[in-house]
Simulated scan of single mutants.
Amino acid sequence: MRFAFRQVDVFTEQPLLGNPLAVVHDAGELDATTMQSFANWSNLSETTFLLRPTHPEADYRVRIFTPDRELPFAGHPTLGSCHAWLQAGGVPRTDVVVQECDAGLVRIRRDAGRLAFAAPPLLRSGPVASDVRGRIVRGLGIQADAILHAQWIDNGPGWVAVMLATRAEVLALEPDYPALSGLELGVVAPWDREIDGPDAAFEVRAFVPSMQREDPVTGSLNAGLAQWLIGAGLAPSRYVARQGTALGRRGVIHVERDGETTWVGGATVTCVAGSVTL
């Protein structure tokens, strides 16, 4: 069967500098085995499949797959799927797009040429035990006192995060993925305006040991980071983060806390449009 297909680049205005996502439209006839097989074949960090919603308030439903498992929620697939759905002619019921996924309903707003999703509640938060911190220290090859703060910020993928002192420290990391096995790790540090410039407030990297890789630009991680950092007074209620620098990407993530809602957004562009046979 042939399905409409798009490959989009998320968290960038310029193609090839963000995080790519494969999107299969009108995928209701596909079973989970085929979806997983295609996600494995595409070999991107995530592949999504757009379906008719089952919840009366949702505009569409999405299933999100990595090459080896299905996720209840992920950030850049949320923005990329919404972009593809709108570009294919999708019309939301209200001024906010409502996406249905295994984590529930996710609101997405359109603002200043960007899409932004409302960060879902954390499934796990709180301090990181000393043994886990020790694994992170060994896996990153750093001194224990290099970690200024550490927190669980799991909103589906399983993120744990640490803060280092400088952007240079974050960019210098060369992780030992086997040592980090079983963790999905985010690392963040503030920019120094005099050294790093005024374009962002934080540098972010995402290490995924289960896939032995670094994720270029990660919406779910940045959502969890925002909820942690803003809530703890480590970040202002509105800021810009950069991610992907170490991989030659230029991901730009816009974060804003509005009342009780944390919005995480960025630009999205289509790089490939056509059809796929599955």
Rank of each mutant, 00 (worst) to 15 (best):
G141Y: 11
V132Y: 06
G89P: 09
G244I: 01
T34R: 14
D59C: 11
P67H: 00
N222Q: 09
L140Q: 08
L247A: 07
H149I: 00
N40Q: 13
Q99H: 05
G251P: 13
L16E: 00
Y177N: 06
H25I: 10
Q7Y: 00
A116G: 07
L122H: 04
R133F: 07
P121D: 04
F5P: 07
Q7D: 03
T34S: 14
A241D: 06
A112V: 02
T262C: 13
A206Y: 14
A223P: 10
A189C: 01
P92Y: 02
I230P: 01
V23Y: 08
D199T: 13
P236C: 03
D196H: 02
A241C: 14
D258T: 14
Q14D: 12
P236I: 02
L86I: 09
E256D: 10
Q36C: 02
L50T: 06
E194H: 12
G266N: 11
D102R: 14
G28H: 05
Q212A: 14
R193V: 14
W263E: 04
E203F: 01
V162D: 09
R205Q: 07
R6E: 14
Q7E: 12
F11Y: 09
A88V: 05
D9C: 00
L30P: 00
G231N: 08
Y177H: 05
R133E: 15
N222W: 12
A58Y: 08
N43R: 13
D68P: 04
R133T: 13
T78E: 03
R242C: 07
T66F: 09
R133C: 12
R238C: 14
A112R: 11
L185P: 08
L229V: 06
I230F: 07
N40K: 15
G156P: 05
W41K: 10
G224P: 10
A226T: 02
V162Q: 05
V255S: 03
H254A: 15
R63S: 09
G251D: 04
D111N: 12
T66C: 07
E256A: 14
E214W: 12
F117Y: 09
T66D: 04
A232P: 08
R93K: 15
T277Y: 13
S45E: 01
L17T: 15
R213Q: 13
Q243V: 11
T218L: 00
R2S: 15
Q36M: 07
R107L: 11
A232N: 09
L71Q: 08
A200C: 00
L122G: 07
G274W: 05
R205N: 03
L44W: 06
A27K: 02
Y239Q: 01
D192W: 03
R52I: 12
R69Y: 12
G158T: 03
R110Y: 01
L278K: 00
A201V: 01
G134E: 15
M1Y: 09
D95E: 14
C82P: 03
R250Q: 15
P15W: 06
P178W: 01
V97I: 13
L44H: 05
V204Y: 01
L171M: 11
R242V: 13
V106H: 00
F117M: 09
W191I: 00
H83W: 15
T262S: 06
A112M: 02
L171G: 03
A150L: 08
H55P: 02
G126N: 09
R69F: 11
